[in-house]
Design a protein around this nucleic acid. Sequence first.
RNA 1: GGAAGAAUGGCAGAGCGGUCGAAUGCGGCGGUCUUGAAAACCGUUGACUGUAACAGGUCCGGGGGUUCGAAUCCCUCUUCUUCCGCCA
Length: 423
Amino acid sequence: MLQVSYIRENKEEVLARLAVRNFAEPQLVEEVIHLDDQRKRTQAQADELLAKGNAAAKQIGELMRNGKKEEAEAIKAETSSNKEEVKALQDELAQIEHDLQQRLVQLPNLPHKSVPAGKTPEDNEVVLVNGDLPSLPKSALPHWELAAKYNLIDFELGVKITGAGFPVYKGKGAKLQRALINFFLAEADKAGYEEMMVPHLVNEASGFGTGQLPDKEGQMYHVGLDNLFLIPTAEVPVTNLYRDVILKEEELPIKNCGYTPCFRREAGSYGAHVRGLNRLHQFDKVEIVQVVHPDHSYDVLEQMSAHVQGLLQKLGLQYRVLRLCGGDMGFTSALTYDMEVFSAAQERWLEVSSVSNFETFQSNRLKLRFKGKEGKTQLPHTLNGSALALPRILASILENFQTESGIKVPACLVPYTGFDFIN
RNA sequence: GGAAGAAUGGCAGAGCGGUCGAAUGCGGCGGUCUUGAAAACCGUUGACUGUAACAGGUCCGGGGGUUCGAAUCCCUCUUCUUCCGCCA
């Protein structure tokens, strides 16, 4: 959530930066400022009356103590109308605040200056391409056929017990999953991230804190009976660990990682390009999260990007890094890098990580603050990234490392799998 | 699921309906003393809003009510603790 004070003081800049996103409702900016004016005015009126009432009450108290009942009664009579006026103003204020909030939450984060304008993924900027694209023989198979051939994943079984998009990993397929999770966690640990094991269901307040709610509830599975949501990413529970917290400056940076399954409804995204592991309703992911001083957040973003790239290099996968354009960036992000792995058999790039700086957008919603050296509280920046999401990594390992006789397991995983070849 | 109790500042813990944003202790910060440190002593130490700056306003788990006035009384929700039941 943007800060009203910032919007007020930098209206033109806010509008210009929202335009980079092709934000469709710039009039909301003006409305926010207008409502905030109203809010201040009404608040001031109510406060004045309250002050009057407080003073009267104090006076009555004093008079009563001194036994001057009649004088007290006289003041009492005067103040009775005060009460209704206050009530009316406060009701009005509540309405204004509601309207203000309702608009405020519709404003997406402001893109960083380096974010290219653009509408579609075509407009994303390719920052770097690492490695030569692998070329496979004509006989190469896509991962869903390899998964069947070597009995690693059973999509049909998943359909039987749950539905499409919930695969069952079997045997060496399951072990490979577990190995990837352990490898990613071990690497995060080495990089100084403290591991957190968090709930996979979150409440509404958490969904709001990281920006999934309101408006994006259609993307999450909702447990109606208890009003809880299955997490779409570990970002939600991990970042919300710091909701309503005032940190000391010396506690920064906070570095957390966590493995969780992720649940996404992916409504409306059926059809082409969702075969096999390309798009699932449940998948596994290791996430890294940082809470940092605003001065360092873009350095940290580069570090997190480097960490993710390091994982891909160790796995021996060819990848590229994209700087997302304004139109393709998530609602809450100021700058996002996507890492994509080249899937040789499908001959297409698959997104395996997304690393973002949210600046103060989430901390403002979370009421996450830190107390600076001079004792002033301010909002830190939050960042997170997938390190990494498993299914597409698994897909590209299967496809890119396939041979006539089986699949080679990347060397960095062998200590975790206990085998180096699948056949 | 049933019964009882509780929820106050970073923590612990007071708080007859008016003088309570809140005693006291610990912790934190600043200072005196000291070569330095500890101890001792003195001072200081919540958040939000608002203002050019003062002032003012709000907050004692959340919401509502009674009252001129609520941390204190009433209703309700939530959470926690203890006991019982069930259970991986």
